[in-house]
């Protein structure tokens, strides 16, 4: 019988779908019987999804222009 601790130690691999079918079905049985672990699995999955959906902020124009200037200088020096 799987304990909550066992379940949590496999949680990342479970959410990443990086476990074999046998272990997967044991974990899935555990969450049908354990509401706490179900909530933790569900909210952890949502946590990951929200972060994955974050778009990078557009790079600020002043930061980009300093980057491009620095690179142009470097390229010019290399080509001499």
């Amino acid at each position: 019988m799987l304990t909550c601790k066992d379940f949590l130690s496999e949680l990342s691999d479970y959410l990443d779908e990086a476990i074999d079918a046998g272990l997967r079905s044991k974990l899935e049985r555990h969450i049908t019987e354990c509401p706490n672990c179900w909530v933790i699995a569900d909210t952890t999955r949502k946590t990951i999804q929200i972060y994955k959906g974050m778009e990078p902020y557009p790079i600020p124009p002043d930061v980009e222009s300093r980057l491009m200037k620095a690179l142009e200088k470097k390229m010019a020096a290399k080509q001499k």
Partner: peptide, 20 residues
């Protein structure tokens, strides 16, 4: 990497739960 990732995910989940 795996153990730190699990800890990081659980800590973030905990923090976001307060909002969500």
């Amino acid at each position: 990497v795996k153990s730190r990732l699990l800890r990081a995910r659980l800590q973030l989940r905990e923090k976001l739960t307060r909002f969500f």
